[in-house]
């Protein structure tokens, strides 16, 4: 049984639910209370991906208004990226195209998941509307609160990393 360690960084503006997604994924917990992340929290979870034990080391980064402001050393050595926005706050995806372009140009070979979070706060009709108005395609629509699509998102990223 082989084990590999891979670093994954989770990015996006503050308050979109990055820490909550990790907490849900790693500890199966959710809290309504918002605690701003400062600096870096590192969590680890071992995933069984088709027999391979993937030690996913997730870097929960302090949310900032732009990917460009993230300290480059934080992203060094990462194998996968997650970009999260908040479906209930249009401000968090207003500039999503530039953000994603920037990430793709800096890390052209890294798998990247674009995630719309807080699905539980959005009506299905409005969700369709939001997605239809975006010029970028979203990989996952999640809820850190209900856990919907959280595992799927991390596991899919894990699979892509191992490919």
């Amino acid at each position: 049984m082989s084990e590999v360690s891979k670093k994954v960084a989770i990015l996006g503006q503050y308050g979109v639910g990055k820490s909550s997604l990790i907490r849900q994924f790693v500890y199966r917990k959710f809290s309504e209370k918002y605690l701003t992340t400062i600096g870096v929290h590192v969590q680890k979870k071992v995933l069984d991906i088709n027999g391979t034990q993937l030690a996913m080391i997730i870097w929960d980064l302090e949310g900032d208004t732009s990917v460009g402001k993230v300290r480059p050393s934080y992203l060094m050595g990462s194998s996968g990226l997650i970009y999260v926005f908040d479906l209930s706050r249009p401000h968090t995806y207003a500039d999503i195209n530039q953000e994603i372009d920037l990430l793709k140009s800096e890390f052209p070979n890294e798998p990247l998941k674009i995630v719309g979070n807080k699905k539980d706060l959005i009506h299905d009709v409005d969700l369709d509307q939001i997605l239809a108005n975006m010029t970028i395609s979203c990989d996952f629509i999640t809820s850190a609160k209900t856990g919907e699509y959280v595992d799927e998102m991390f596991y899919t990223l894990g699979e892509d990393i191992l490919k």
């Binding site: 360690s5 891979k6 670093k7 590192v42 680890k44 870097w59 060094m76 050595g77 194998s79």
Partner: peptide, 19 residues
């Protein structure tokens, strides 16, 4: 795990370099 993942970043460094 922080140190575990920093190992991944170290491969890119030469002797005498730091981050």
């Amino acid at each position: 795990p922080f140190f575990e993942s920093s190992l991944l970043a170290l491969s890119g460094l030469n002797a005498g370099e730091s981050f």
